[in-house]
Nucleic acid binder design. Structure first.
Lengths: 180, 180
DNA sequence: CTGATTTCTTAACAATTGTTATCGTTTTTA
DNA sequence: TAAAAACGATAACAATTGTTAAGAAATCAG
């Protein structure tokens, strides 16, 4: 969906053996809010959400599906505690890589290093656009955009997560859906 | 405020003669939405807002003040049309630099190149946080955060720009302010 | 200095969303 | 498979925000 995959380019293939394949049940937390990220992930099968605790309320703010890279980027890179949880929604098959190995790959391949930096840049633009959609659109419009551009999300993700993602309550989302 | 300055480190000083100092009146557009960015800016005095036209409505989404770098990053870097306008709010004194010279500096100084890439990374985190505040907080809370963390904005920027930035109408902002 | 514009407030009403609670239905788990 | 938990729809009412309009105050421009 709105996520930029960790491109498995030709270049990456030479390093694939350094990834570890892991299977997780649904609702498994891969990284807990407040902890320091030690691994980055790549989804082979399944889906994941990012969420954090906001005064006792579970706030979901991003979804990831097959062939997308997921991590708490700033925690993974800088060693700060993660601001959010990374949690499976469905049972999932994940490739994981340690910090040490990841940065070793970056050092040994300028091509990959470059592509990762490009990824930071693109992700910045992505978040800028997400932020803009919050400013310009009301919840109903944001729901319709989601319906138009990422219908798969609505089919795979429980509705109250989506409500949270849209910035409204589950009740309000249910109303919007049944208002034609 | 919430912007990451283009750090004028020691390293930068050797290149300062390549910048051009320009003076602008209030409400001057430095880059128009839809045009390709040819210059990046650094504010010596004054302030600037970023805004775009949304169905005829003027939507402001970021403010910049003294000692901050401003540009339509993705347009400046990739040559795509800018998604927004860059406009002075007050009469301003600006350092400007052309694309050609800017990237020449990046090529001649690995230190600066590195710091710019670091800037992309930090700006990504910045936009991520902005986006999160849209999800977790209601307009009133966002106004109070602004009041607490960036009181200078409220003193220097017209209120309807701030309302737009907070994602509400000027009328609603006026009500929030006068509701104690 | 004066008329025009911009900026902010307030009012009245409509529309939307939040809150709380209830009730089937589906899914999970022991 | 049976009990428990999760999920989604709906209702009733409160609170918030949007819309439109009018008017006062401040600022700008000639």
């Amino acid at each position: 969906m709105q996520q930029l995959p960790l491109t498995i380019s030709e270049e990456w293939k030479g390093f694939m053996h350094l990834f570890k394949e892991e299977k997780y049940a649904a609702k498994k937390i891969l990284l807990r809010e407040g902890e320091v990220s030690k691994k980055a992930f790549y989804i082979l099968k399944g889906c994941i959400r990012l969420w954090f605790n906001n005064d006792g309320k579970d706030v979901t703010f991003q979804f990831f599906f097959e062939d997308e890279g997921v991590s708490s980027v700033e925690s993974f890179k800088t060693g700060q505690p993660s601001l959010f949880n990374i949690e499976t929604i469905e049972p999932s098959v994940i490739l994981s890589i340690s910090k040490k190995v990841f940065f070793h790959i970056l050092d040994s391949s300028p091509i990959i290093k470059n592509s990762i930096e490009e990824t930071y840049f693109k992700r910045m633009i992505f978040y800028q656009k997400l932020f803009l959609s919050r400013i310009k659109d009301n919840p109903k419009k944001r729901y319709e955009d989601l319906l138009e551009h990422y219908p798969q999300i609505l089919q795979r993700v429980p509705q109250h997560y989506i409500a949270s993602y849209l910035g409204i309550t589950p009740v309000s989302l249910s109303r919007i859906r049944n208002r034609n």
